[in-house]
Design a protein around this nucleic acid. Structure first.
Lengths: 356, 356
DNA sequence: TTGTCAATTGACAGCGTTGTCATTTTTACT
DNA sequence: AGTAAAAATGACAACGCTGTCAATTGACAA
C-alpha cells in the first residue's frame, strides 16, 4: 500500500529541534518563542510571524515533558473507567480525544475494576506521577464518594459523567455532565404503554449504578402517570449483561404469563432477552415487546432490531472534556455555552409492537 | 457507596515529594535514590532498604516528566490504530496496558483514520512531542510501508501486529507478532467441508487488509486440498462490516442456489449474513451454514451462535508489548521465550451443520 | 597492616521548557 | 521633542530527575 497524500517535506534530520534553535533562527529569545507557542498576549504580530516561520522551517515540536516540568500545565488528562462495555469506552475515548487534539493534550487511559480495593491508590498514583491536569470520570466510579473525596483532597480538576437531571444537592455543580436517564426511561415506558402494554417487566442493571435507579424511577413514574399500578414482582434484578437478559427474560416469562413487554435496562440485556425469547419460541414483537437502552451499534443488528433510547456517548464525552478544559482555564469562564445535560431519545425500531 | 478496602495512610499533605526529600530522609544522595528507583545494580542491600523505607514513608512517586526529560527513556509508549472494531481496540488496549502497568509505563492511544492523508504527520508529531519510547501498530496501519519507513527514519522502537505465518522476506523479523489467519481459515473451511459442504461462498473484508488475503488464501488452500474446484463467482468482495454481510449474503443467495455455506471474513460480516438469512427466511444451519472469524463477544449472542475462529486479541497485545519492552532493553535479549505467532482456533457453535 | 581493585556512592551539570522579573521598545500625551 | 506609561522582549533560574565521572568505601590478598 502506498501513501496517497502529498509527500510532505518531512524534517527527518533526526536531530531534536529545540526551542533554542527556533529562537536563534527567528532572531528572538527563547522566551518569546515560548510565548508564541503558548498563544500568550504581548507578542507583536511581526515577531510572531517570524517565529512561526522558523517553527515551520525547522518543524519544531515542543517537548511535552519539558513543558510540563517547567510549567504548571501537564498536557495530559486522564480517563478512568471500570465499565466493561467496549462500545461505551471507545466512544468516551474518542469523544475526549477529539477535544484533546484541539487543545494539544494527550489522554492517559486507565481501566480498572471497580471492585478492586486499590482503585484509590491507583488513581492517586496515576495523577501524581504524571502530574495530570485533569480527569474525566465515568460511572460507576464517578458516583463513588471516596473517589471524589480523594480527587478533592488532591486538589485536581475533574469532570464527572453522572446519571441524573440536575446538579444535585451535592456541591458538584460545575464539574459534571448529566445524562437524564429518568426521562428517557419515562419515554420508553410511555411508548410501551401507548402500544397497549400494561404488564411491563423490568430487568435492572447493577444497582450500584445510579443509571439503574434512574431508569427504574423513570419507568415507575410513567406507570404511575398512566395509572398503571406498579407490580414489584415484575422487576427482575440483573446486571448490565447479555446473560442477565437471558436469565431475566426466562425468569419473567416463566412465572408471569401476563407480561407483554420487557423494559431491559440496556441493549445488552435486551439482546439477551431477545435470545431467550428465541429459546422459548416467543415471537418478538407479536407476543412480547422488548426495549433496550443506549442504542449500541448492535441494537440495529439484532433480530428484530431493538427499540431503544439513543445516547451519543461520544458527544457526552466531548462535552465532558470541554468542561474540563474550560474549568482549568484561568477564570476565562463561560466562553461558550455548554450542554451539561443530555436526554437520550427514544428510537422506535422493530422489537416493540401493539399488544396482540 | 463506600470504599471497601483498608484505609491506606494516604499522604495527602498536598506537597510534592521530590527525590531530594527522600534522599535527605534516607541520608543518601539523590543519585542513590534514583538508582534504587530504577533497579540499577551496585546498590548495597542496606542502602536500598533505607531508601525504600523513606520512599514508603513519604509516599514518593517519581515524576514522569522529569524522568523522561533527564533520562533517555520516556515512560510512555503509543498505540496507533485505525480499526473501527470496538472490541478489537479495547482488547488491544487492555493487553498492552497490562504490560505497561508492570513496567511503569503509560500508554498514549492514537486512533486515526487510515484514509486520512495526515496519518504520517500525526504519528510523527505524536512520537516527537511525547518522545515516545515505543509504538505498537495494528493492522492495517502495521502493513503500510510508508508508516514503517517513517518509523525507521525516526529511529523509534516499534512492534507490528501482522497477518501471516512467519517473518516474511522483509527485514521486520524481530519486531512483529504474527496472526496466522491462513491456517485458521483453512481449519474453518475444512470444518465446513467435513460437514459435506462443497459450494462454499466467501465474503471478504477490505482487500487492503492482509488478513483478508490470508483468510482467502487459507480458504482456497483447503478447497484445493480437498479437491473442490474453486468457483471465483462465489467470492463476494465486501468490507468488515455488518452491512457488508447483509448485502453479501443477499447477493450470494440471489444468484447461486447451490451455495450451502458462507465463510464470512469476520464475525460482523457473519452476523450480517445471519440477519439477511432471516430476511430471506433461510434457516440456519439447516439450509445454510455460516462461519465468522475472531470470536467477538457477540458471536455468542447471535442466533444461532456463530461458529468462528477464536483469537485472543488481548494475549496478542500483551505479547506485542512484551516484545516491545524486550527490544528496548539494552541487549538483555531473550529473557523469556515469547510467542510471536498465534493461530486462531476453530470454535464450533451453532451456525454450521451437516448439509441437508 | 597495607595496597590494590572493585563495588558503592556522591557532586554536579544539564535535559527543554516556562515563570519571574528586569530591560528595552513603542505608544500616547504634553 | 520630551516624558511617562504601557507594551514587548529578554536574561536567567528553576522544574525534578538522570548521566557522567570523580570520590569514597569495602574486600581481599600479601
Amino acid at each position: 500500500m502506498r501513501y496517497a497524500g502529498t509527500i510532505s517535506k518531512r524534517n527527518n534530520n533526526n536531530m531534536k529541534v529545540t526551542i533554542n534553535d527556533v529562537a536563534r533562527l527567528a532572531g528572538v529569545s527563547m522566551k518569546t518563542v515560548s510565548r508564541v507557542m503558548n498563544n500568550e498576549p504581548s507578542v507583536r504580530k511581526k515577531t510572531s510571524d517570524k517565529v512561526m516561520a522558523a517553527v515551520k522551517e525547522l518543524n519544531y515540536k515542543p517537548n511535552l515533558a519539558a513543558r510540563s516540568l517547567a510549567g504548571t500545565k501537564s498536557f495530559a488528562i486522564g480517563l478512568v473507567y471500570s465499565n466493561p462495555n467496549a462500545y461505551y469506552v471507545i466512544d468516551m475515548q474518542n469523544g475526549i480525544l477529539s477535544r484533546c487534539k484541539e487543545e494539544g493534550y494527550e489522554l492517559l487511559i486507565h481501566p480498572c475494576s471497580s471492585t478492586d480495593e486499590n482503585v484509590l491508590d491507583e488513581i492517586q498514583t496515576m495523577i501524581e506521577r504524571s502530574r495530570l491536569s485533569g480527569l474525566v470520570l465515568t460511572p460507576p466510579l464517578s458516583e463513588r464518594e471516596d473517589v471524589i473525596e480523594l480527587l478533592d483532597s488532591l486538589n485536581i480538576n475533574y469532570v464527572r459523567i453522572l446519571s441524573g437531571r440536575e446538579p444535585t444537592e451535592q456541591e458538584g455543580k460545575s464539574n459534571a455532565i448529566f445524562v437524564n436517564d429518568h426521562d428517557a426511561a419515562y419515554q420508553i415506558t410511555e411508548h410501551l404503554i401507548s402500544l397497549g402494554h400494561k404488564h411491563i417487566a423490568f430487568i435492572t442493571g447493577e444497582e450500584e449504578h445510579k443509571s439503574t435507579l434512574e431508569r427504574l424511577a423513570g419507568y415507575k413514574a410513567a406507570l404511575s402517570e398512566h395509572n398503571i399500578s406498579l407490580d414489584e414482582s415484575l422487576i427482575f434484578p440483573g446486571k448490565y449483561s447479555f446473560e442477565s437478559g437471558v436469565e431475566g427474560a426466562k425468569a419473567i416469562m416463566a412465572k408471569n404469563s401476563k407480561v407483554t413487554a420487557i423494559f431491559a435496562c440496556n441493549d445488552e440485556i435486551a439482546a439477551g432477552a431477545l435470545f431467550a425469547s428465541r429459546l422459548m419460541d416467543i415471537k418478538i414483537p407479536e407476543q412480547l415487546s422488548i426495549t433496550g437502552f443506549e442504542d449500541s451499534p448492535f441494537s440495529k443488528q439484532t433480530w428484530p432490531k431493538l427499540t431503544t433510547a439513543h445516547q451519543s456517548n461520544q458527544d457526552i464525552a466531548t462535552q465532558a472534556a470541554k468542561l474540563l478544559f474550560a474549568n482549568s482555564r484561568p477564570t476565562k469562564i463561560k466562553e461558550e455555552k455548554m450542554a451539561v445535560c443530555f436526554t437520550p431519545e427514544l428510537v422506535v425500531r422493530d422489537s416493540t409492537g401493539h399488544i396482540a
